[in-house]
Design a protein around this nucleic acid. Sequence first.
DNA 1: CACTTTCGTGCAGTTACTGTAATTTTATTG
DNA 2: CAATAAAATTACAGTAACTGCACGAAAGTG
Lengths: 209, 209
Amino acid sequence: MNSHSDDGLRARKRAATRSTIERAALSLALEHGYDKVTVDAICEASMVSQRTFFNYFGSKEGVILGSAPPMPTDADVDAFVHAAGGDVLGDLVLLMAAAVADHEPDRDLLRSRRVLIQRTPDLMNREIARMTELQNGLVAMVLARLRASGRADSTDLVEEARMVVTLAGSVMRYCMEQFFSGSAAGSPREVLERALALVRRITDGGEHG
Amino acid sequence: MNSHSDDGLRARKRAATRSTIERAALSLALEHGYDKVTVDAICEASMVSQRTFFNYFGSKEGVILGSAPPMPTDADVDAFVHAAGGDVLGDLVLLMAAAVADHEPDRDLLRSRRVLIQRTPDLMNREIARMTELQNGLVAMVLARLRASGRADSTDLVEEARMVVTLAGSVMRYCMEQFFSGSAAGSPREVLERALALVRRITDGGEHG
DNA sequence: CACTTTCGTGCAGTTACTGTAATTTTATTG
DNA sequence: CAATAAAATTACAGTAACTGCACGAAAGTG
């Protein structure tokens, strides 16, 4: 019938309501603060039942934080594992950054999310928690790379992998804070590189103590 | 009247109920899992009203996690700031470890907490969040030390301080995981030292790429 | 023994969230 | 196009964490 881009009516309607709820939630939270806004208020503003809200977003936090960063694709993992020998930490950070980066096409929405996360401790904590969950899935990957680099398998190697992931998480958290607080200068890539350089400088500090 | 250690009857009763509730909560959670246990159940088991429970612990998580790690004392801060020149990261980790360490005299309770935190993602996240909050108060302290080391004040210096704290948080998280999962070998101090050495080894990896 | 302060409690209410079953809306098929 | 399947939306009832408030009981004090 009507000319429409691609999917069926169903999918389009779904996307529309999702977007409506999202916008309502972010707008209300920006105006009144996250904890002052009730789910009921969001539902009223977006003309949906509470049950529908939870069908879409699962939780009040969910609508603000947006979808969780996806695990890297198999191709990404493969590339990472077999880029043996180089800078494990740097490569991992790049990989994680790629996973976190895009993923939200709408710039305004993204900015709203960031503002809210930054000014709401609860949300900040949840965001960090999500990152932590992502990390857990990454240990195996790093371990594979260490093995591929010819490192002998051992308990120590597992610990090393865990630490690599933890450190990468640090760098990510640091960069995210910089982004969220708006004090980031230069391209994301540059920020990452600077953060990595900073890490190396700091950890060198105790070497010759 | 009756011979008693020190404080008034009031304080002793308070400590007793607190302990009763704590034990009931931990025992129930260990047996049935944290999320299967309701606050009502804990109250019934410890013969207190729900209102009293919340007066004591503020939240369901609160009774499991125990009291939050306190900020270091002024004396600690002073010592840290003026131990200039050495290994900032290492010293900070030691300081944070001291804050987190003791603080719970009862060994059994401590072990119960650890087990529960480890097996309950929600609790783990909250614990990490608490650590993160602690971190925020530490940036100023690190900054003071960097300044005391003769470093010129600048935006970069603030960023460096933040990164030092973030890294220290990483090391702490890593060690906490090791402790919680029971795979820690040796004294806490040794575990910390090994973790720090590991960090240095890893961050050296990209230097000569 | 009065008197004050602190504690514990009951109760009503708010908010996030879940399960279920009915109802409406969209897609498919004969 | 009508019958029907599939999926979305809804109302409703219920659970569980948590808060504010006001009242009575216990403990400290002179």
